[in-house]
Write a protein that binds this DNA or RNA. Structure first.
Lengths: 118, 118
DNA sequence: TGAACAAATGAATAACTGTTCATATATTGT
DNA sequence: ACAATATATGAACAGTTATTCATTTGTTCA
């Protein structure tokens, strides 16, 4: 990638670039952070999270509230579960899901705050 | 979708479902919110945003700092631009990008906060 | 034990997305 | 006007993803 040379010789912002490079996040940090945001980035999952922001819900009720198939909801819940964005507890035939922690709540809030101010 | 009936008769959480349904976000809100999170959900865009969190940068320097082609960076900048997550100003041959507003900053912060506490 | 039901899951598919490559546009200095 | 350079963009391709369908697992109750 010859861009590096180009930048060093012409942009004349080498120091700026190096400074930014030093504060750059680790590759693993970037990956896990983007994975979380990506989870928020699908309409179905976002709806699920927004429901769970209000109350714990079983899969059946979620699929009912979102008017989506049980299977589709279940598949997405697995994604959220794997990323530890939601937790679940079993009660008889039902499995109840809820948000995993406070941060999830706040990330959602910040996002909502943003779209309101656009 | 017969699930609706199933839920009403068996889950016995009709009230809960209806309550949640009422507070549900508008379809357009869900879409624009998920679009924003989706933008954060790609490693390349996340890196770009994280760079811009620290300083205004030109395309050339960004592609240099991320060690990616100018074209790839430019394409992603367009996505961020269209969503108004970044703003840009032209200065001669260079175009300088920066975060569009405070919320973007805080969404990033909240996300980082989350992965640190996992 | 068997019927009914909630939830999970694997496979298949259609739609989407990020990068590359080639090229176009716009600006600067000669 | 021309060469050099920064940026933008269209087309194409490979890789990913969300949903559907069919099936399985696990639980309750009769």
């Amino acid at each position: 990638m010859s861009k590096e040379l180009v930048c060093e010789e012409n942009c004349a912002h080498v120091d700026a670039v190096n400074e930014v490079k030093e504060t750059m996040l680790e590759s693993t940090e970037i990956l896990s952070l983007s994975a979380i945001f990506k989870a928020f980035g699908d309409p179905t999952r976002l709806k699920i999270l927004h429901c769970l922001q209000q109350r714990e819900m079983c899969v059946c009720c979620l699929s009912c509230a979102l008017d989506m198939s049980q299977s589709a909801v279940s598949h997405q819940l697995r994604v959220l579960r794997n990323l530890r964005l939601v937790k679940h507890r079993k009660e008889g035939k039902n499995v109840y899901y809820s948000l995993d922690d406070e941060h999830i709540f706040r990330i959602l809030e910040q996002g909502l705050e943003h779209i309101k101010h656009i």
